[in-house]
Write a protein that binds this DNA or RNA. Sequence first.
DNA 1: AAATCGGACAACCGCGACATT
DNA 2: CAATGTCGCGGTTGTCCGATT
Length: 289
Amino acid sequence: MGRAPCCSKVGLYRGPWTAKEDTLLKKYIRVHGEGNWRSLPKKAGLLRCGKSCRLRWLNYLRPDIKRGNITPDEDDLIIRLHALLGNKWSLIAGRLPGRTDNEIKNYWNTHLSKKLRSQGTDPNTHKKLSESVQELKIRTSNSIKKLKQKSKANEETEKPKIHYPKPIRFTSLSSFSMSRNGNFDWTTASGTSGHEGDRRGFGTDAVDVVPWPNLEDEGIGNGNGNEVGFRISDDQDQDFVNGSDLECLSDILTCSTSLEKLYEEYLQLLKAEEDQIEYLDSFAESLLI
DNA sequence: AAATCGGACAACCGCGACATT
DNA sequence: CAATGTCGCGGTTGTCCGATT
């Protein structure tokens, strides 16, 4: 249950601080020191709430504040610390003398997150965006392989059926993103490719591909519980029993061979990074002590 | 020259943690 | 132990200002 906002009191100023207010605040703190923010405004002759005074002092008036000109070294440090600590701006600021949490937060939101994105890195997870996409592609091809096997089995046991093409509903792989907690963001996955006109990869065939977060249930996942992939929805399985569907799949499966190679390389990279992650973990612990 | 847009950053707000009564 | 007060944090909003149309 939240308390009433302290700045809603009638008669208190809000918005940008004037030079006069700054002077009053600095003068008061120089004499009496920081703290007692609740009573400070009254004593200092300011018509501001204590929170506002505290913020103004910590983020702007404090004498030891460095302003602007964040160096490439600081850039790098912020990125590394963010990778370790997440949005713990005060902790990050604590490692950067003269920088405030607010400044770092703003700098992150306006500069660094864009910089990382432009480098193909997810600013929330610090993982390569292409890796996320690659993983999804691999899982898709695995799903299709399974489906192909299933279709073959069906062919052997059932008479061929004629199925008319249905409009495709295939979500664009390139539009996935990772959320802060490491899950994929499916809300962005429909978008432009969700309409009937977009039939990339599957020709005119009817495939309804839906998010499939529980790959482990099918023995496909690697057991870490964080995987997301595709499955072809059950009610569409029958659409794959005719030959034309499988022809379309062959292109994808050819592609999946090279994806398997890429996946091998990816696993090797992961292995190589394990040592580095171990080092970073111990570094993070040292920061939090 | 005016309008619009977008980046940068200061300031606000809600809430949780902790301290005090 | 519960109620209340204070502080600090992180997310969001508002405003300023330069660039672009």
